[in-house]
Each structure stands twice: as structure tokens, then as C-alpha cells.
Design a protein around this nucleic acid. Structure first.
Length: 579
RNA sequence: CGGGGUGUAGCUCAGUUUGGCUAGAGCGCCUGGUUUGGGACCAGGAGGCCGUAGGUUCGAAUCCUAUCACCCCGACCA
């Protein structure tokens, strides 16, 4: 492609609404432009990159035995009502009423549609297993789109769904997808961490996330020191801190006036207490059930863990519910005396490190001190559960190993779904033994745009992007530097040779000074640069430079083509893991 | 959804506090010339309903009201 004819509008200035490097660089390098919050138009160079990524994904998926299909991005609401996921997704799911009054949703994902397809087409175990995938636009009306393409409303996702006759078959495909994902991300030049994402519910290794560690990531990855175990902070289990069971000769509970002190910080400051002595009490609702959750003051409840322990979905209680339960304003709840009024008391291990603590008095503007767990509120009993329900923090251990924390971008997830969708949507088949069974399912997603953004996050410098060749918009950029017909002709010649040999080449034939071309070449991040200038041309040489290295090699003009083709092969080989 | 902020040239932003504007700068764009290896220089030029709609005023980018868009923070409060 000739630069003079291409729409690659690079800009010098950092756009004011771009916060993280990948977002800034994608705008600056002319890869995309924003249309509205969370939606972007991909310009030629940006679209080339996306296509490269999609082709790698497609290639590996096809090799794995999956079959590509394409499902509609407008789906009937009825399907979602059948699985109840219209409620789960809530306002994140965009929907509209068509002219006939039918409700439609803009696909945020496609489990319903694909399961509906399977329900109609799969009748026999002989058709199983099967793995269907698509690469398509998804829409999620995020409550807060941000970070450019990392959390956008419209994005491209590869989503695959597998159907099986038995668990063993699902396990097999799951493993195949797991390996396929490793190859996909490696080929995209990404260093990933595989994170355990689903700890209990479905048993064992139900789900893994593929995460790219980098500063701008929205997820927090927790790893054991030896790297053998990695998990998302939302699930990260921690060892229980040693419980204290000192002598029981504590003073009786005593009320203290704490006017208008509601938060942990306020109470600590007011009573000159350490947050480690406080028992934080939170009221949750689960349908009509009330759940009281306790955690030590310096920790935070982890809603995901709490949900697992509670065994069902939960939400924080509203003000009215709390007032009705505690008889006090919000901010003064405590476990003493109200346990008969709740359905479940869930206590984090950390509370048991408190011998005599401070907590809310269930009376506006009052707290109580000398609160002894087990004496003043139950720590055993039918509706009392002691569990790990708090967020892991620096200093925690798991199985005796110190936990480390880093941020990451989630680029892919593999998931064992079981029969959740097949039962609700009637995806049944007749098994060998002539009994009717529900398909066991798995699903496997990859965020195409996120691959692009994370590649930039982890591979860039002050001048711009440094693409791995597998997903670069072009393999080579030719920058004639200086004017003169000989230079232009030599550049043109190399361009024609390389293009004919199948390389993807951008010829910077613009009427611009060398400096401008070099800056743009670096910003765009094309892996190989060929420069032809007056000096080297006089010696019948061209200069070859890799974007990721500073070294410049002079190569005789007649050898440039071969040399470049070799370089392309070499760079590609570095990324072709086992392919 | 709650809190905060910003809307002025294609982009980045001054100007708004204290109304007087016939609205500015840098970058980008167009013309001509000189240049030409790391975002050149000179000269000339195009480009704005100051987000939108009302209002106050002799007079509004500036003050008031409403509204829309975009951005940031938060949605863990006990």
C-alpha cells in the first residue's frame, strides 16, 4: 500500500480523553477514531490489525476441529427470558422494540442462540461432540465504558460453544481449547497468565481466564509466590488467620456513644481504635432472605465469595431493610441480638482473630465494645457459617504460600457450562442407551480488540507501538529519505519486489521530510523498516532496521528482497509456537 | 445511578472570575517560495451559529434556567 493513498491519520498530540497508553497510541497511530462513548471506527491500519488477529484465532480454532458459523446480532428477547439471563444482564443488555412490538436484544453473547440451534439440529449422540464458533460484534451497554477498546460497548468477540454427550467429552474439548488458546495468544506475541476463575460451584477446574499482565489492566491477578497457582482477586482464596481463643474473662459488653460516626475510619479516629479490633457488619438480601456478613474492620467483604458461601445471588440491603432489621440508622449495625431475625450469619475467619472487639450497637449513634465472638453472638449453630468471604490483601497466604498481586487484562476465558442452558432451552439428544439426555456444554470466548490493546500495552516505547509481526498492520515499511528520482525509483523497486513476493509492504511515498516519515513509522510500529537515502544509495545500499532494535544494517540493494523475506520468516517463526 | 469536571477552528487549549469580542494561540489544512536522514522555515490564506434551547441585558463565549454530549471518581455503606 502507498502511504500517500492510505488513510492513516497520525497525530502528534495526545487526545484529551485517552488515559492509557494503548488508547492513546491507537488514536495517535491513526488506527481508530471514536464515534461515541465506547464505540470506535477502525481505520484501514487498525482494521488490518484486527483482521490479522481474527485470522490467527480462526486458523487455530479450525485446527482444533471447531466449525465457524455466524449468528445474528439481533436476538429475540424470548430466548433470554427462557434462561432468565435478561434479568442477570439487566441494563447492560441493550434492547429495542421492533415495529411489530417484539422485543429484541443486541447480542451481548450467544449461549441462548447457539443452544436454541442445537436444540433443533442435534438429536443423536452420533452428532456429538461438536464445537461451533463465530467471530462477531457484541454489544454490551457498559455502565462505564473506558480505556478505549479495553472496555467498550461494541467489541469483537470470538465465542465458541461445545456440546457433549458426557463430562469426559467436555473435559477433552476443554483441554483442547485450553491448548488452542495458549497457541493463539503466543502467536499474537502475548505473554499470558492463566488464572483459575471458578473455584467451587461446578467443581474443580470449571473455568480459566487468560490474562495479560500489565499496568492498565482492570483485573487483579493473585498468584502464589512460586507461580503454581493464579486466580482472579474476585475469587482468590486465603488461608485463615490464626484464631485467638484467649481466656474468656473479658468485661461485659459496654455501649459507647459514637454520634454520627458511621464508617470504620470515623470510628477508629473517634475511639482511637485500630480497624483490626472492629467487626464490620453488612446486611445482604437474597430474595426475601436476610444475610448478615461479618468481617474484620480492616478487610473488605468479597461479594463473589459471599455469594458462593450463601449458595445464591445476593445484594446489599437497602436503607429501609437495614433500619427495619437493626432499628437504627445505617452505620450502626452489629451482630448482637439480631441473629434470630436473620436467615444466615456468615462470619469471615478474620473475625475470630478478635478477642474483644467493637461493633455497631443496632442503635443510632451507638457502638458497643468488649464484644467477644462466641459469647456475645453465635459462632456456631445451624445458620452460622464461618468461611473465607473477604478480599485477599498483601500479606495473605494461600496454602502457606505468600500471595502476590498484579494487574492484568482479561483476553480470553474458557468455561464449563454443564447443562444450564441445554435444560432451559431443550437441547436434548438420544444417547446410546436410548435415553434422552441434555447436552453438556462448554463455552470459550476471546476478546479480539483486547488482544490488540494488550499487545500495545506490553510492547511500546516513547516513539510508539512495537508490533509483533503476526498482528502488525504491515510487515515492512519503506521510507525513502530525501528527494531525488533515484531514491524514489529504488524504493519503488523494492516495494514491487517485496509485494510480488507476498510481503505486506507500506511504501511511504509521501512528499514529506525524512523525520516525519521516521516518526510515523515508529508510531505505527511496523516491525521492519527499509530506508533508502542519498548516502547509502550512492554505495548501492539500503538500510534495514527492526522497530524493536536500534541497530541499523546496511544491505546491498540487490540483496534487500531476500534479506527482508528472511527477516519476515525469522520474526514469524519466533511467534509460531508449535504451529 | 451518585459525585465532580469539560463542551470555543480538524486536534490540543486560552479567553468565562469582573458582560464591551469585529473570538484567539499552537498543531494540522490550502497557495507560493526556500528546504529535505528524526515531526523544517518564510510569506499569504481558508476554516467558528463559543454543545443546544430559552431567558436577563443597550450589549452574552462570559450571567441565569433547562437540556444534550463527553470525561473522571465512586457505586464496599455499616
Amino acid at each position: 500500500m502507498r502511504y500517500s493513498e492510505a488513510l492513516i491519520p497520525t497525530v502528534k498530540e495526545v487526545p484529551s480523553d485517552a488515559e492509557i497508553p494503548s488508547h492513546q497510541l491507537m488514536i495517535r497511530a491513526g488506527l481508530m477514531r471514536k464515534l461515541a462513548s465506547g464505540t470506535y471506527t477502525y481505520l484501514p491500519a487498525g482494521w488490518r490489525i484486527l483482521k490479522k488477529v481474527m485470522n490467527i484465532v480462526r486458523n487455530e480454532m479450525d485446527k482444533s476441529g471447531a466449525q465457524e458459523i455466524l449468528m445474528p446480532s439481533v436476538q429475540p428477547m424470548e430466548l433470554w427470558q427462557q434462561t432468565g439471563r435478561n434479568v442477570d444482564y439487566g441494563p447492560t443488555m441493550a434492547h429495542f422494540t421492533d415495529r411489530h412490538g417484539r422485543e429484541n436484544v443486541l447480542a451481548p453473547t450467544a449461549e441462548e442462540v447457539v443452544t436454541n440451534l442445537a436444540a433443533g439440529e442435534i438429536n443423536s449422540y452420533k452428532q456429538l461432540p461438536i464445537n461451533l464458533y463465530q467471530i462477531s460484534f457484541k454489544f454490551r451497554d457498559e455502565f462505564r465504558p473506558r480505556f478505549g477498546v479495553l472496555r467498550s460497548r461494541e467489541f469483537i468477540m470470538k465465542d465458541a460453544y461445545s456440546f457433549h454427550a458426557d463430562e469426559k467429552s467436555l473435559d477433552d474439548t476443554y483441554k483442547v481449547m485450553y491448548e488452542t488458546y495458549k497457541r493463539i495468544f503466543s502467536r499474537c506475541g502475548l505473554k499470558y497468565v492463566i488464572v483459575e476463575a471458578e473455584s467451587g460451584e461446578m467443581g474443580g477446574s470449571g473455568s480459566h481466564q487468560f490474562t495479560i499482565p500489565c499496568e492498565s489492566g482492570e483485573d487483579v491477578i493473585v498468584q502464589t509466590e512460586d507461580g503454581s497457582y493464579a486466580t482472579n482477586i474476585e475469587k482468590a482464596p486465603v488461608d485463615a488467620l490464626p484464631a485467638k481463643t484467649g481466656n474468656k474473662n473479658y468485661k461485659p459488653v459496654e455501649e459507647i456513644n459514637t454520634p454520627n460516626r458511621k464508617t470504620i475510619e470515623e470510628i477508629c479516629a473517634f475511639l482511637k481504635a485500630n480497624a483490626k479490633e472492629l467487626i464490620k457488619t453488612l446486611v445482604y438480601k437474597s430474595g426475601t432472605d436476610l444475610i448478615l456478613a461479618l468481617v474484620r474492620g480492616d478487610f473488605e467483604i468479597n461479594p463473589e465469595k459471599l455469594r458462593c458461601v450463601a449458595g445464591k445471588s445476593i445484594e446489599l440491603a437497602d436503607e429501609q431493610t437495614i433500619k427495619a432489621l437493626t432499628g437504627a440508622e445505617v452505620g450502626f449495625a452489629g451482630p448482637i441480638g439480631i441473629t434470630p431475625k436473620i436467615n444466615k450469619l456468615i462470619i469471615d475467619h478474620s473475625v475470630l482473630t478478635i478477642e474483644a472487639g467493637i461493633t455497631g450497637a443496632n442503635k443510632t449513634d451507638y457502638h458497643v465494645k468488649n464484644v467477644v465472638p462466641g459469647r456475645d453472638f453465635p459462632i456456631t449453630g445451624k445458620n452460622v457459617i464461618i468461611a473465607d468471604i473477604r478480599n485477599a490483601v498483601q500479606g495473605d497466604t494461600y496454602k502457606g504460600q505468600k500471595l502476590t498481586f498484579k494487574r492484568g487484562i482479561e483476553v480470553g476465558q474458557v468455561f464449563k457450562l454443564g447443562t444450564k442452558y441445554s435444560t432451559k432451552l431443550g437441547a436434548k439428544f438420544l444417547d446410546k442407551d436410548s435415553t434422552e439426555k441434555f447436552c453438556i456444554m462448554g463455552c470459550y470466548g476471546i476478546g479480539i480488540n483486547r488482544i490488540v490493546a494488550s499487545a500495545i500495552e506490553i510492547s511500546r516505547d516513547n516513539d510508539g507501538i512495537i508490533w509483533p509481526i503476526s498482528i502488525a498492520p504491515f510487515d515492512v515499511i519503506i521510507t525513502p529519505a530525501g528527494n531525488g528520482e533515484e531514491i524514489a525509483a529504488a524504493a519503488e523497486n523494492i516495494y514491487n519486489e517485496l509485494t510480488a513476493a507476498g510481503a505486506e509492504v507500506l511504501l511511504d511515498d509521501r512528499d514529506a521530510r525524512g523525520g516525519v516519515k521516521f516518526k510515523d513509522a515508529d508510531l505505527l510500529g511496523i516491525p521492519i523498516r527499509v530506508t533508502i537515502g542519498a548516502k547509502s544509495l550512492a554505495e548501492n545500499n539500503a538500510e534495514i532496521k527492526l522497530r524493536r532494535e536500534s541497530e541499523i544494517t546496511k544491505v546491498p540493494l540487490v540483496q534487500v528482497k531476500e534479506k527482508i523475506l528472511q527477516l519476515i520468516e525469522k520474526l514469524k517463526a519466533e511467534l509460531n509456537v508449535g504451529a
